Simulated scan of single mutants.
Amino acid sequence: MDSTPPEVSVALPAFNAGPTLPAALDSLLAQTHTHFEIVVADDGSMDATPEVLAAYAARDPRVRPLYLPHRGVAHAFNAAVAAARGAFVARMDADDRCLPRRLELQAAHLREHPGTGVVACRVEFGGSREACAGYAAHVDWTNALLTHEAMSLARFVDAPLANPSVMFRRELVAAHGGARQGDFPEDYEMWLRWFEAGVRMDKLPQALLVWNDPPERASRTDPRYDLQAFYRVKAEYLARWLALHNPHHPEVVVLGAGRVTRRRAALLEDHGVRIAAWADIDPRKIGNTVAGVPVVHRHELPGPQACFALSYVASRGAREDIGAFLEARGFRPGVHYITAA
């Protein structure tokens, strides 16, 4: 093996990935960037994953296996990063595929933009848009967020970048921590933490990864990716963001008064945020009170100098409608209101 450290290390956790790992590895070994390694952290697989990995490592020294006891994806990712020798670390999943120029273009972006810590890319959806319409819509949403500013403002809606599409500077893990094990989605929590720490994140406009959506994907099967887990971790980071950016802290006015919105927004109260009013357009809700908090028509909202608005409606069409309404009233995103879900 070349003793010179590679520029890029691919951190690839794998668990029971025997059927998909060959395609993932083939896509990496076909990259136009030549100076890289693939650190595959086998998380105690019980299928053919170890055999597949050993066969690839025997053929190509760029494939570096780590055989670990089963402790979960956060531990496997951290182990891969700890073993990485490259200045840049590319995240990859064992059921996805890279397009040929992914490592080349992302490494070049980090080289040319020293102030950027993380660079993602657009992704191709690798599932059935009919059978997996929600996931496909999420892909379309993330693909529309191309700047640091857009991703930062959208991060309390959902993860604004596809986790396996990311490349970052290895030093960021020492500075801000890697994946944390807990009852929450480890990837989303890490990106929220790094955003909070001020890490700049860019996204390339090219689609450089095929993001597959198999039925056994962890986000579909792992309880840490349960919707309530997302809401809990979002509420913690959103509350801290509000404490720093809301001039009327701890009070907010929440746009949306439906049961789901109220349940999600109420998680903020555990972190000291106080909901001063719910604002809605449904005449059946307006004039009522919920736990002592009045429901008003959104046209009754005071101006941006008198309140901070939190748009907490999950549906995309309604989210855009609320944003347009607030901005027509002089509310600026990130200054007078923020969108969550």
Rank of each mutant, 00 (worst) to 15 (best):
T32M: 06
R155T: 06
P5F: 05
G134Y: 06
R97H: 10
A197D: 15
A324G: 14
H35P: 01
H148Y: 12
L29W: 04
M1N: 12
G18S: 12
N16P: 11
D93M: 02
L242F: 07
L310W: 01
R111F: 08
L12W: 01
M92K: 09
T261A: 14
E251N: 13
E171H: 11
G317F: 07
Q228M: 15
A74H: 01
A82I: 01
G177V: 03
H176Q: 13
C121W: 03
V40S: 02
G115M: 01
A76P: 00
R91N: 04
W241Q: 03
P50C: 08
N143C: 01
P302S: 12
A229N: 06
L29M: 06
L53F: 12
C307H: 15
P283R: 10
A11K: 02
A136C: 15
R232A: 15
A239F: 13
K285R: 14
A159R: 02
A328H: 04
H299Y: 13
M46D: 10
M151F: 12
V313A: 04
L68F: 00
L12T: 05
D222Y: 11
H109V: 00
Y188Q: 06
V39G: 03
E186Y: 04
V313K: 00
G126H: 06
L209A: 07
H33Y: 08
V40M: 00
R91A: 10
R274K: 13
D213E: 03
A84T: 08
Y56E: 06
V123L: 08
L153M: 14
P160K: 04
H336W: 00
A30P: 01
V290R: 01
A277Y: 01
R262Y: 10
P294N: 02
P65D: 00
D270H: 15
V166D: 04
P205T: 03
K285L: 15
D43P: 03
D321N: 09
V8D: 02
D26E: 09
V233H: 01
W278R: 02
K203I: 00
V199M: 15
M92H: 12
R240A: 14
G334C: 06
G334Q: 05
A324F: 14
D96V: 13
D226Y: 13
C98L: 11
T34V: 09
V295N: 03
A94W: 11
G134F: 08
E7R: 08
V273L: 05
V118P: 07
E51K: 07
V63F: 10
H336E: 10
D183S: 12
M1I: 00
P185L: 01
F230Y: 15
S27K: 03
A174Q: 03
N78L: 07
V254C: 14
A107H: 08
R64F: 09
A229F: 04
G115V: 03
V254F: 15
P69M: 06
Y56W: 09
L310G: 11
H70L: 09
L12D: 04
A328I: 09
